[in-house]
Write a protein that binds this DNA or RNA. Structure first.
Lengths: 263, 263
DNA sequence: TCCATAGTCCCATTATATGGGACTAATTTG
DNA sequence: CAAATTAGTCCCATATAATGGGACTATGGA
C-alpha cells in the first residue's frame, strides 16, 4: 500500500484518511460534488466509498442528494451549541485555574470581538476575595484599558489597529487610564516589543494586571491571558516572577491547541 | 483480530472504531475520564491511544487536561453555527423542491418548537405565484390551524397533547378554523388514524393543504411535510394523487436520514 | 431510451492495524 | 518528597483487515 511521509507519533492511517474526507465534507457543506472534493485525496473509488459508507453509517455525514454530502444529523445534534469560543474556554480553563491558584491571583482569558474584549474565562485562587467584580465571564469590556485588551490590540494587523485608534473616544475609567490615541499607540508599540502588557490601575484604581498573548503557529494572536492582583498584594513580588508563570502557561496552551488550527 | 457481527454494506472497521470513540468523547464533553469512556469499546490500550492520536492530530478532539478529551477547536470552528434544524432543512430541501415542482404547489417542512410550528423549508414550484405569504422560513405559526401543525400534534405523546389542548385559546384565523379544544382533539384522532392531515381554509380562506409526518425508525415523529394549494387549483385533482406523492417523499426522507438518529 | 457517472461488490495481495508487553511520563498518595 | 499508580508511548511479530483493479448495477440527465 502506501507509506505516510510523516509518521510523528503512532497513528492509524485508515482513520486519518476517513477524517480527512470528513473534514472536506464538513467545510464544504455539500456544495461540491464528491468527486471533485475527493480528488485531492487521491483515493481509489473503492476505498473512497468504503470510507463514505462508514462515515454515513456512524452519522458523521448524510447524503444530501446525488453526489452531495453534508454533516450528519446525529452529529449536528451532538455538537449543537458548541462554539469556537466555548471550546477555547473549556480547553484553557484548567490551566488558568492552576495558574491563578499558584499565583494567588485571578486569571483571565479574553478574545477580541468587534473592538471589545470578551472574557471567556475567569478563574480566581481560593484565597482571592470575591472582589474583581469588573469582569464577568462572557461579557465585554473596552479594550484600551485592560491588559488583555492591550495585548490583543498590539498584535492586531497595523490597519486594524489604526482603525481602532481612530475610533475613539477613549473614556477615562480612572485617573491613570490612557485616553490619548497617540499615547495609546506608543504604549501598544511597547507591548509588542516587550511581549506583554501591564495595566496599572487604568481600569480600576486598585487593580494591577499583567497580560501575555496566546500565539498560534504563525505568530498571530487570537487570545490573551492575564493575571490580576490588587495593588496591595502585588507589592510583595516583582513582575518577572509572574510574567514567567504567565508565559509558561501561555506556551503550554498555545502548543496544546491553538497551534493546530490549520484551515 | 475480530469480526464484525453485522457487515451490511462495505465499510472500514478502523474508521468505525475511531468514530465510535469520537462519538463518545463528543457526547461526554470531557466529563468522564478516557478510561471509563473507552471501557465499552473493549479496545487494547495500544489501539485506543493510536486512535486518540489521530483523532487529535486531525483536530477532531483536544486534550483538555489529564485523561480528559473534548471536541477539537478546528472542528468547533468548522461546525460553528450548525444546528440540528439547519441540517434537517438542508437535508430535506432538495426533495421538497422536487415535490413542489412536480405537484405545481408549495411544499413545507416544519417541526414543533414550544407549541408552535417552525417552518424550516418552504419551496414553491416555479409556476406558483408569489402568494402564500403566510409562511416564511424560520418563523413560527400556531400549530392548531395548519396541516403540519395538526400532524405534529397528532403524533405527540398523549400527555403532551392534552397539555397543548388545555392551553388554548385557539383563535380563529378564518371562519373554518377549529377553535374548540374538543373538536380539535377529535380531528387529531382522525389525523393519526388516517396518517395525514388536511387544512381546508383554516389558516387563510383560499388555502388548501395536505400534510404527512416524517416517521423515524421507532415510529415517533419529529417533523412533517406538507403541500399547499390555492383552492382554485386544487379542484383539478383529488387528494389521493397528492397524498401518494407526499408519502413517497416522506418515506424517502425518513429512510434517508431520520432513521439513523440513534442516540 | 440510451449514456454517463455514481455507487456497490468481489477477490487476491500485502500493506497495515493489531495487541501483548516493556518502558517513560505524569499524577496521586502516604 | 519518595513510592505507587495510572496515563500515554513505543516496539515488533503476526495475520487481519484495508487495499485497489475492475466488473457490475443503479441512478439521473438528455
Amino acid at each position: 500500500m502506501e507509506h505516510t511521509p510523516k509518521p510523528p507519533p503512532s497513528g492509524n492511517a485508515s482513520l486519518e484518511k476517513g477524517l480527512a474526507l470528513f473534514n472536506l465534507i464538513a467545510r464544504d457543506r455539500g456544495q461540491t460534488p464528491l468527486k471533485e472534493l475527493a480528488a485531492g485525496l487521491a483515493l481509489p473509488r473503492s476505498t473512497l466509498y468504503r470510507l463514505i459508507n462508514t462515515l454515513e453509517g456512524t452519522g458523521m455525514i448524510t447524503r444530501l442528494e446525488h453526489r452531495r454530502y453534508d454533516i450528519g444529523l446525529p452529529l449536528a445534534e451532538a455538537l449543537h451549541g458548541i462554539t469556537p469560543a466555548g471550546q477555547l474556554a473549556r480547553l484553557c480553563r484548567p490551566a488558568l485555574r492552576q495558574l491563578a491558584s499558584t499565583c494567588g491571583a485571578t486569571a483571565h482569558l479574553g478574545v477580541m470581538e468587534n473592538d471589545m474584549v470578551t472574557y471567556l474565562v475567569k478563574e480566581s485562587a481560593p484565597s482571592v476575595p470575591a472582589a474583581l467584580s469588573i469582569s464577568v465571564e462572557n461579557t465585554q469590556l473596552e479594550a484600551y484599558c485592560s491588559g488583555i485588551g492591550k495585548v490583543l490590540l498590539a498584535w492586531l494587523p497595523e490597519a486594524e489597529r489604526a482603525r481602532y485608534l481612530a475610533g475613539g473616544p477613549f473614556v477615562a475609567l480612572t485617573s491613570r487610564t490612557i485616553t490619548d490615541p497617540r499615547q495609546l499607540r506608543e504604549t501598544l508599540k511597547t507591548v509588542k516589543a516587550e511581549q506583554f502588557a501591564r495595566d496599572d490601575g487604568e481600569i480600576a484604581e486598585d487593580l494591577y494586571c499583567l497580560a501575555v498573548p496566546l500565539l498560534t503557529g504563525d505568530q498571530s494572536v487570537s487570545a490573551a491571558i492575564s493575571l490580576t492582583f490588587t495593588h496591595a498584594r502585588q507589592k510583595k513580588h516583582d513582575d518577572a516572577t509572574y510574567l514567567a508563570k504567565l508565559r509558561a502557561c501561555a506556551a503550554r496552551l498555545s502548543r496544546a491547541s491553538l497551534a493546530n488550527i490549520q484551515h
